[in-house]
Write a protein that binds this DNA or RNA. Structure first.
Length: 227
DNA sequence: AACGATATCAACCGCCTCGTA
DNA sequence: GTACGAGGCGGTTGATATCGT
């Protein structure tokens, strides 16, 4: 654990951003415990990682969420629950933090403003573990649980590989890219089948909406952010 | 113009998982 | 088997901006 007396907190300065950016460009992502020392920053490893992933990383899209993106978020959330990193993985150049903030500040409030039942911890419909009939032991687990690798993407998770390939990250600096490209090629087909299966389930899951009394409308949320 | 209420979002915290010694 | 450290995640907070009166 970092020595709390030496660690700076709060908003990042431009100078700190520059130091962190230089450090990551020089040494690459990862080894976050070494970053404060390498960069000369009085920040904890977690703070450095978060700053990089949510703000400094190249190609991050910080613009308005499009209607399609909101629709996708709503559909994925219905299936996956608050698995922000996984949801963000399907939205190129979006961060989990941004998706989470969007959900908490916009989407979560819609039903209340329309006089519908609000979302609470007790009435949220949590995703149930799903077992797929696919007999091939995939790279990821067939069980959708927090501990499974599909819920927690790893370097072997093809869904993440596809997302990274789509947004062009990890292309140059990552020494494992070649190996991962092979994995990507091998698993992309299965990955797409998995997601197709998932989206078919969203259509069936509309019943859940009716049962829970909760509903979201991508058009409405999008219009709110884009008057 | 002033002030309180509300919204937004960057950042922190604590917990979990995984790899390794 | 287990203890430990690093990476990663979701929940939450707090500062700031914006809006309404």
């Amino acid at each position: 654990m970092e020595n709390s007396t030496d660690v700076r907190k709060g908003a990042w300065t431009k100078e700190e951003d520059a130091l962190l950016r230089d450090c990551v460009h020089k040494y690459g992502e990862g080894k976050w415990h070494l970053v404060p020392l390498r960069a000369g920053l009085k920040r904890c490893r977690k703070s450095c990682r978060l700053r990089w992933l949510n703000y400094l990383r190249p190609n991050i899209n910080r613009g308005f969420f499009t209607k399609d993106e909101i629709d996708l978020i709503v559909r994925l959330h219905k299936l996956l629950g608050n698995r922000w990193s996984l949801i963000a993985g399907r939205l190129p150049r979006r961060t989990a933090n941004d998706v989470k903030n969007l959900w908490n500040s916009h989407i979560l409030k819609r039903p209340l403003e329309r006089g519908e039942k609000s979302i609470t911890k007790s009435n949220i419909v949590r995703p149930q573990p799903q077992t797929f009939s696919n007999s091939r032991p995939p790279v990821w687990s067939t069980q959708l649980t927090r501990s499974s690798s599909i819920m927690k993407p790893t370097s072997h998770d093809p869904t993440r590989l596809v997302a990274e390939a789509n947004d062009g990250t990890n292309s140059v600096e990552n020494p494992n890219m070649e190996r991962r490209s092979l994995l990507l090629e091998e698993d992309q087909g299965e990955c797409m089948r998995w997601w197709e299966h998932l989206f078919k389930m969203t259509e069936n899951a509309d019943q859940d909406r009716l049962c829970s009394g909760l509903s979201f409308d991508a058009d409405m949320v999008w219009n709110l952010g884009n008057p």
